[in-house]
Nucleic acid binder design. Structure first.
Lengths: 229, 229
DNA sequence: TCAAAAGTGTTTGCAGTACACCCATGT
DNA sequence: ACATGGGTGTACTGCAAACACTTTTGA
């Protein structure tokens, strides 16, 4: 079926910047394009928005189709609209960014799904379209959010140690943090529940495991509290 | 000329939340709809995006056409995509928010332009479409931005007193601020240049006038500084 | 001379920062 | 026994918060 309109309309896509955390580095999930334009180049997962779905739905659908990921933290980032960002025709793209826990991306790495691959944000290949701009914007946003909202946990497995969390902050923000001060502050918010388990690895003392307490977080949020660092 | 596509496409609009500051209150500019749907109701200024313009251009064009405003602070807010937000057909709207100085909105109030009118954010009439959601989102964003970026000046005339600025912060954030602490902090950033003029009004001591120094701001920004409150 | 807003410093407490050593484990 | 990261407390400093009176003007 063909569709006819009075005035020309831009096509609408969503593109997703999926962040993960592994090997003490912030990672981004890219897919290799199988078709022209930019065939063979790396790009952000994404695709056209259907006329009967919201943008959030489109983003989740595309992620599932192209990378097998689902149920992750997802938030709208910005809408990109340079007139020539797509060489074929006018395409406006609503960008999203997503955060995944390592459990999931392990699963992902072993499945197929087009040709998805994780890249450290420190070594990103040339990207199709204006995806480098989108990625830069997403990084900026992630850094901002991490400081004043407790979303770091979305990048860690459900059980994690304070050192894991600190490494994450250091990697994303690109700073070094004092161990004692970091722990003092994080624990002061009372958002982390110590578990009865420890994490053992290597020849040293085992580390206390924690999990994030989302219920407590919602309570605090309603009282208007201010998370930082 | 008709335009035909393989798949149905959503229509794309921009909607603008224009903030002003007057009578010690935060104001929003609304226009009365002259056509169905929602004929006779108040709505945010906005309209369809043309296929050869960016979203920013579309937003500025619509603002000029519908309200006569130009050269104002304008920033993309969020893209709204509920499937039924427009009863006619699928319309996705990219929302912007804008800040205007009183000099301009005085001019505006006396011109015609459809039927634009300022409303205090404390007394907003029923709005067309999902514009109430958009406005709520814009307010939230404005409150957030005001705290950690020096954009308050965009809502004041080029020359203003510290009391004006304080009133603005109090109105937007909905808090009372200590006069001495406020002045101390604002001046500490060294972003305000004292002028050789004073503002006289009423039976009391005249107030020092200041202007914002954008050059200095850019310099500080590059050095990575942190504005707050 | 009165009313009304402008302008100005000091004290206090808390939160951020800096900093060094012992602990538990695997090899 | 040694190497490795886990875990802990204190002193200092600087910024935020609280707070009251004098100044200048117009009526």
């Amino acid at each position: 079926m063909k569709h006819t309109y009075e005035y020309p309309r831009a096509a609408l896509t969503v593109d997703c910047v999926v962040f993960g955390f592994d090997a003490a580095e912030l990672q981004v999930l890219l897919i290799e394009r199988g078709i022209s334009p930019f065939k063979g180049q790396w790009a952000l997962p994404g695709g056209f928005v259907r006329v009967d779905e919201t943008l959030d739905e489109a983003a989740r659908r595309e992620l599932l189709e192209e990378t097998g990921l689902e149920k992750l933290f997802l938030e709208q980032l910005y809408t990109f609209s340079s007139v020539n960002r797509d060489p074929r025709e006018r395409v406006i793209s609503v960008a999203y960014y997503a955060l995944t826990k390592p459990t999931y991306h392990r699963t992902q790495a072993t499945t197929d799904a087009a040709d998805a691959q994780w890249f450290s944000v420190r070594h990103i290949p040339a990207l199709a379209f204006d995806h480098a701009d989108i990625l830069a914007t997403a990084l900026q946003r992630l850094r901002g959010k991490l400081r004043y909202e407790p979303i770091g946990f979305e990048l860690l497995p459900p059980k994690f140690t304070l050192s894991h969390l600190q490494q994450l902050y250091e990697a994303v923000l690109g700073t070094e943090l004092d161990k004692r001060n970091f722990r003092k502050k994080v624990l002061s918010y009372d958002l982390l529940l110590p578990l009865d388990e420890t994490h053992r690895e290597g020849a040293h003392r085992p580390a206390q495991l924690f999990r994030f307490d989302p219920v407590r977080y919602e309570k605090l949020k309603k009282k208007g509290f201010h998370f930082e660092l």
